[in-house]
């Protein structure tokens, strides 16, 4: 556990760099986390993905599989990988402020 201050908020992160309380999240925080993952600008399409992941996490307690994400958020697989280069699963979850997803798919 580590407390970091981002956008004037003190936030708790786990050992792997995922936020421990997704309710502390806001878009300003997402921008900083995205920059750390090498994403300079967060577009509306990024936010579509992030918001879908957050909704899933809130209702199910875990991030969605890539398959559900692409089928239900309206962002196809190819675009998802372009939006979050170098592995969408963990990157998007980290930027979305949710815990590391547990699914294999």
């Amino acid at each position: 556990m580590a407390i970091r201050t981002i956008a004037n908020k003190a936030l708790d992160f786990d050992a792997e760099g995922f936020m421990t309380n997704f309710k502390d999240w806001d878009v300003e925080i997402a921008k900083t986390l995205a920059a750390e993952e090498g994403i300079a600008t967060l577009t509306d399409r990024h936010l579509t993905v992030l918001n879908f992941m957050r909704r899933e996490f809130e209702t199910k307690g875990d991030g969605p599989s890539i398959r559900r994400l692409t089928k239900e958020s309206g962002v196809p697989t190819k675009e998802l990988y372009e939006l979050f280069p170098g592995g969408p699963a963990k990157k998007a979850a980290r930027i979305a402020g949710i815990k590391k997803p547990h699914g294999c798919i």
Binding site: I66, Y81, P85, G86, G87, P88, A89, K90, K91, C104, I105
Partner: peptide, 12 residues
Amino acid sequence: LIMANGARMDGI
């Protein structure tokens, strides 16, 4: 298939 997909999910 699961291992290949999982690799891509992690940027491998």
